[in-house]
C-alpha cells in the first residue's frame, strides 16, 4: 500500500503522474463534450453511437468498482440494470410520474436487491458469489419473461421518453453527465479510507480481516453501491431506447459490459470509460458493415477478453499507465522506481 504513504519522497514522486492524470482527465472531458460537433459525429447515427458508448462506459465503470477492487465479478450486472429500468418504466407508465423521478427509484430497487444478494452471497468464496449473482440475474430474467401482466414479457414494454425530443444530442449530454458523475463519485470513494479497505480486501481477504476490517460490511457496501448505479443506467436505457424487453437483463449483455471493463483495465475505473468509446463505436460500425454476420462482434469481444486475460491482465489502463510513466520519467530520471510504485495498481498484480 505504497499509495497512501505520506512520506515527502513518495508524495513528490506521486505528484508527477497525478498531475499528468488530471490534465488527461480534463482534456478527455473537453474532447467528449466537443465531440458531437466534430464530423462525422455531427450525424444522428453517430450521435446515437456516442450515447450508447457513454452508457456502456458508465456501466463498465460501475462494474469495475466491484470487479477491480473487491475482486467479485457481478455476473448479474445487466439484470440489476434491467431491474432499475423496469421499476422506472412501470411506475412512469402506471402512475404518470416524471421519468426523472425514475432515477432515484430505479437506483433504490436495484440497490436493495443488490444489498440482499450481497448479504446472501458475499460471505461465500468469490466464485460462489459470481455464480450466485448469475443465478439471481437468471431468476430476474425469468420473472421479467413470465410476469407478462406487468412487463408484457418478450413483447417488450413501451416506455415514455426522458426528454421531449428525438434529437440524440441532449440525451448524449445527459448520459455524459451521468458518466462523469459516476466516475467522480466512485473515484472519490476509492481514494477515501473506505476505498483503502476495498483494495485491502480484494488483494488479501485474510490479511484484511487480521488487520481489523470486517470484510462483509465493505463487500456488501461496495456491491450495493455498484448495483444502485446499475439501476440508474437501466433507467436511462429504458427512457432513451423507449422499449424494454427481458433481453436487456441477459447474460450476454453482462458479458459485453464485463469484456469492456476488463479490456479497459481492471481496478482503474477510468480505463473502462476510456476504452468503451472507441470499442463500442468500432463495434457499431462493424455491425453496419457486416449486417449479415450480426454475431461477429461478440466473437471479437470474446477473443479480446481472452487475449487480455492471458497477456495483459491490467488491460488498456495498464498500457496507458506504462506509457505515461515513460513520458513522466524522461525529464527527471530521479523519480524512477518510486514513481512506478506510487501509482495504484490494485487487482493488476497478476
Amino acid at each position: 500500500m505504497v499509495t497512501t504513504s505520506t512520506t515527502p519522497a513518495a508524495s513528490a514522486a506521486q505528484r508527477g503522474p497525478q498531475r499528468l492524470g488530471l490534465i488527461a482527465a480534463v482534456v478527455l472531458i473537453a474532447v467528449s463534450i466537443a465531440l458531437p460537433f466534430v464530423p462525422p459525429f455531427t450525424g444522428q447515427d453517430w450521435q446515437r453511437y456516442l450515447v450508447g458508448a457513454a452508457l456502456i462506459a458508465a456501466s463498465a465503470v460501475a462494474f469495475d468498482f466491484t470487479a477491480g477492487y473487491i475482486d467479485i465479478v457481478n455476473f448479474g450486472f445487466a439484470a440489476f440494470m434491467g431491474l432499475g429500468g423496469y421499476t422506472s418504466a412501470i411506475l412512469v407508465n402506471t402512475y404518470g410520474i416524471s421519468p426523472w423521478l425514475g432515477f432515484p427509484l430505479g437506483a433504490l430497487t436495484a440497490g436493495i436487491l443488490g444489498l440482499l444478494t450481497g448479504l446472501l452471497t458475499l460471505r461465500l468464496r468469490g466464485i460462489y458469489a459470481a455464480v450466485m449473482t448469475w443465478f439471481v440475474a437468471l431468476a430476474l430474467l425469468g420473472l421479467a419473461r413470465n410476469l407478462t401482466d406487468v412487463t408484457r414479457g418478450p413483447l417488450g414494454l413501451a416506455v415514455s421518453p426522458l426528454l421531449a425530443t428525438n434529437d440524440n444530442l441532449p440525451y448524449y449530454y445527459v448520459m455524459l453527465g451521468i458518466l462523469i458523475a459516476t466516475l467522480v463519485v466512485l473515484t472519490l470513494v476509492i481514494r477515501s479510507r473506505v476505498g483503502l479497505a476495498f483494495r485491502a480486501i480484494g488483494q488479501n481477504l485474510q490479511a484484511a480481516r487480521a488487520s481489523g476490517i470486517n470484510p462483509t460490511v465493505f463487500l456488501v457496501a461496495n456491491f450495493t453501491i455498484s448495483c444502485a448505479f446499475a439501476g440508474v443506467f437501466g433507467v436511462f436505457y429504458a427512457h432513451y431506447y423507449g422499449i424494454l424487453t427481458p433481453d436487456v437483463m441477459g447474460t450476454s449483455h453482462t458479458i459485453e459490459i464485463l469484456a469492456i471493463a476488463y479490456i479497459g483495465g481492471r481496478g482503474s475505473l477510468w480505463g473502462p470509460a476510456v476504452i468503451a468509446f472507441p470499442m463500442y463505436i468500432a463495434v457499431q460500425l462493424l455491425k453496419v458493415q457486416l449486417s449479415s454476420q450480426p454475431a461477429l462482434y461478440l466473437v471479437i469481444y470474446g477473443l479480446l477478453l481472452i487475449l487480455v486475460m492471458l497477456y495483459r491482465p491490467d488491460g488498456a489502463a495498464g498500457v496507458i499507465r506504462s506509457l505515461g510513466h515513460r513520458l513522466d520519467r524522461r525529464p527527471k530520471s530521479g523519480a524512477g522506481p518510486a514513481g512506478a510504485s506510487a501509482t495504484p495498481t490494485p487487482g493488476a498484480t497478476a
Binding site: 468469490g126 466464485i127 459470481a130 464485463l258 470474446g302 477473443l303 481472452i306 497478476a350
Partner: peptide, 15 residues
C-alpha cells in the same frame, strides 16, 4: 487464478 480462468472460459463461451 479462479476468477481469471472463470473470465477466460466466459470469453471462450461467447466465441
Amino acid at each position: 487464478w479462479v476468477m481469471n480462468t472463470f473470465l477466460l472460459t466466459a470469453g471462450l463461451s461467447i466465441m
